[in-house]
């Protein structure tokens, strides 16, 4: 880790002003940032500690039915919040399926959005990587790509976004509150992360110095509470990133599907949502055929980067069908002992 200047921000305005200088990084829990700094993957010259910022760690159910989660709320506090667990069960299940208890106790909501890819050619700090060193190339392409993208990638970068939490948030139309020199703004989570295109070094819509201050879930998100599941397939049952995951949510009315939501993790550099697949389910009775058709549509545009991740397309179809089937069966009264695991799922 290279030496850096450390400062402790006392207000959001203070933090934003300090971060205007290039080479600055915000420090919340540091579970990802400190790890990357130790490995020399990222080398900020200035670290601005935002852990003391007042008013950013609350979880607030608002009168209009929406939910606001402060950016400094800890993953475990969000997952354990009774209102979150009851109203947005797949959000709680996804959080509990991520990382370890120690990391969830530290890691923050804002940090979860801002975490970097676990592409091994990015994190090794030496391979050519257009994210780390624009123009150096992509070492992943054509090599070990088990955790790499089958949607939305470019020849410059085939990495995936590693978050579980962001997948149900995308499905539920969450928004991200941002504050910067120019004031406050809000963007939809599905538009917050950028696909790699020609500039994989640009990962989010944040402008230099901008800070994520909160997440909001709209009131409509609550209607899926009874039929929502997160399913995560990984190389070991706990404490591993998703190879493929899916958040599936339905409203059921008289034996027919009203609205459907379906988003994937592990497929792209952002949570991947296909509105056409969701739309195909509206008005249908929940059935293996309807779910298979939705999964087919969802993966229609998928394209593996090579032989090594071709399996992910069929895996994602099956994960989608299984997640939709489980959602139709109903949200369990208690989050299972192994959250989001295919073991014990319908």
């Amino acid at each position: 880790m290279i030496l850096f200047d450390y400062s402790r921000a006392s207000s959001v305005a203070d933090a934003i002003a300090a971060a205007r200088q290039p080479g600055s990084a915000f420090l919340a829990a540091g579970t990802n940032l400190v790890d990357l700094m130790k490995g020399g993957v990222t080398n900020p010259e200035r670290v601005i500690d935002i852990t003391r910022l007042p008013g950013l760690s609350g979880i607030e159910a608002r009168a209009d039915g929406s939910l606001r989660i402060g950016a400094l709320a800890r993953n475990s506090d969000v997952a354990d919040d009774p209102h979150v667990a009851r109203t947005y069960p797949m959000v709680a299940e996804a959080l509990l399926a991520g990382a370890s208890a120690q990391l969830r106790n530290a890691a923050t909501v804002g940090g979860n959005l801002m975490q970097r890819t676990r592409c091994q050619y990015f994190t090794d700090a030496v391979s050519p990587c257009n994210k780390r060193q624009p123009g150096s190339g992509c070492a992943a392409l054509g090599h070990a790509t088990r955790i790499h993208a089958v949607q939305g990638w470019s020849e410059h970068c085939i990495a995936t976004h590693p978050s579980d939490f962001c997948v149900p948030l995308a499905a539920l139309d969450a928004s991200v509150e941002i504050e910067g020199q120019g004031g406050k703004r809000s963007v939809k989570l599905t538009e917050f992360h950028l696909l790699p295109g020609d500039h994989p070094e640009r990962e989010t819509v944040l402008e230099p110095g901008e800070l994520v201050t909160a997440l909001t879930l709209p009131a409509e998100a609550a209607q899926f509470a009874g039929n929502a599941r997160y399913l995560k397939v990984r190389d070991r049952t706990s404490y591993a990133f998703a190879v493929v995951s899916a958040a599936a949510a339905l409203t059921l009315d008289g034996g027919r599907i009203g609205q459907a939501r379906l988003a994937f993790g592990g497929l792209a550099l952002k949570p991947w949502r296909v509105p056409e697949a969701e739309g195909s389910l509206a008005g249908k009775a929940p059935s293996p055929e309807a779910f298979a058709e939705a999964a087919r549509i969802a993966l229609d545009s998928a394209k593996p980067t090579g032989e090594a991740n071709a399996f992910k397309v069929e895996l994602a179809r099956r994960v989608a069908v299984r997640a939709l089937t489980s959602a139709a069966a109903g949200t369990p009264a208690r989050i299972p002992a192994l959250p989001a695991s295919p073991f014990g799922l319908v």
Binding site: Y6, L27, G30, D49, T51, S76, A101, L103, N105, A106
Partner: peptide, 15 residues
């Protein structure tokens, strides 16, 4: 009161 990984916490942030 919460378990965490001490290796990933900068001491300076724990005042």
């Amino acid at each position: 009161g919460r378990r965490i990984n001490a290796c990933l916490q900068l001491a300076v942030s724990l005042d």
